[in-house]
């Protein structure tokens, strides 16, 4: 009796419907792709670094959740003429040469110090630390079920002299503005 039932529960015609889907990418593959992509939607003020041909740097501060994924993402690709590099940092001071800074969640306890150290330097700060965008960060990755989305704190980005494309804001889950900044 139950064998019969199970027989029906195994739909037999599925093979027709299956296409060449790959196994799902990992969370950090997608996050790395986001980091890479953000560079196209943010305008950094002209900096001496750009003039001297320094590469565009995506940096990771604290424990690195990406591993080789980030290097694979940036490899062989230039965001502009200078080329693109991934760097790992241990001290927030080292971030001053970065355009994008991903703050690892090992740094949650020091978040305030890190953001203070960066001051108003034009670095796009990104993290998946909970409530990062409310705690002074600019872009916070948020998992919505199995999907990676992000929230933006526009005031924090504008205060640091970054121009954020409306295309990026459109796909953001939430766009926050700090009440006091009037941005």
């Amino acid at each position: 009796m139950w064998l019969v039932c199970i027989g029906f529960a195994f739909p037999s015609g599925f093979s027709v419907a299956v296409d060449a889907q790959q196994s799902k990418p990992s969370e950090y593959q997608v996050k790395a792709a986001y980091l890479y992509n953000f560079s196209r939607f943010i305008e950094w003020p002209a900096r001496p670094a750009a003039e001297t041909g320094e590469p565009f740097a995506i940096c990771v501060l604290g424990k690195d959740p990406f591993g080789p994924i980030l290097d694979a993402t940036v490899s062989g690709q230039g965001a502009g003429a200078q080329g693109l590099v991934a760097r790992r940092l241990t001290k927030p001071e080292d971030a001053l040469a970065c355009q994008i800074l991903f703050v690892g969640d090992s740094e949650e306890g020091h978040l305030k110090e890190i953001l203070t150290a960066l001051g108003k330097v034009s670095i796009l700060t990104v993290s998946d630390i909970p409530r990062f965008s409310e705690r002074g960060g600019m872009i916070e990755f948020v998992l919505k079920g199995d999907r990676v989305r992000f929230e933006v704190n526009l005031s924090n980005a504008v205060n640091a002299g970054l121009a954020v494309s409306s295309d990026l804001l459109k796909v953001a889950l939430t766009v926050r503005k700090n009440p006091q900044s009037g941005a």
Binding site: Q22, S23, K24, P25, S26, E27, Y28, Q29, V30, A32, A33, Y34, Y36, N37, F41, P65, I69, A72, T73, Q77, L143, D146, R147, V148, R149, F150, D167, L168, K170, V171
Partner: peptide
């Protein structure tokens, strides 16, 4: 090639990719 093709996606497409969370 996940890493390669993901790079080509728009932000909106990236937001629709199902991921395995570690």
């Amino acid at each position: 090639n996940p890493t390669g093709s993901l790079k080509e996606m728009s932000l909106a497409q990236l937001g629709n990719v199902e991921v395995t969370t570690v």
